[in-house]
């Protein structure tokens, strides 16, 4: 059920993001969603891509540090309060949201949200129990 995400270490210096995205493009890898977390010295680029294993290989060959993590994908209706409801469910279940990001979807009237939690299986179960639609990888690729 979980979705594979590839995270990339990016030093804070001009042109670095351009390099990394170019490596992916040259490898024929499509980016479905991404977010960037930044600190003073470095950033972490998190991507959902068309082929995670190939992306990891391409980036490693180019000398980039990568990490693959499983994250939970959720489809929520594009209605005020939808995301608040999701977060509340996770909070009530004691699941800490490390980070989250949203992106457009081919599914009209919905948004997809990626959340990173400590326990994917538990989060998935509790969301489903509360009627939230958890998506699998095929939905985003």
């Amino acid at each position: 059920m979980a979705i594979q995400q590839i995270s990339v270490f990016v030093e804070n210096k001009p042109g670095r993001l351009a390099d990394i995205t170019a490596f992916l493009a040259e490898g024929g890898i499509g980016i479905r969603a991404f977010s960037i977390a930044d600190t003073t010295d470095f950033g972490i680029l998190r991507l959902i891509v068309s082929d995670t294993q190939k992306a990891a290989q391409v980036l490693k060959n180019a000398g980039v540090a990568v990490s693959i993590t499983e994250v939970v994908g959720i489809s929520i209706p594009d209605v005020t309060g939808s995301f608040a409801k999701v977060v509340k469910i996770l909070a009530d279940a004691g699941e800490n949201v490390e980070y989250a990001y949203a992106f457009l979807t081919p599914e009209a009237g919905h948004a997809y949200v990626i959340v990173r939690v400590d326990d994917n299986a538990k989060a998935t179960a509790v969301l489903k129990d509360n009627g939230i639609s958890v998506i699998d990888e095929s939905a985003v690729l």
Partner: peptide, 9 residues
Amino acid sequence: MSDSLFSDS
């Protein structure tokens, strides 16, 4: 940075 040091968090 190396794969062992790196994480998505």
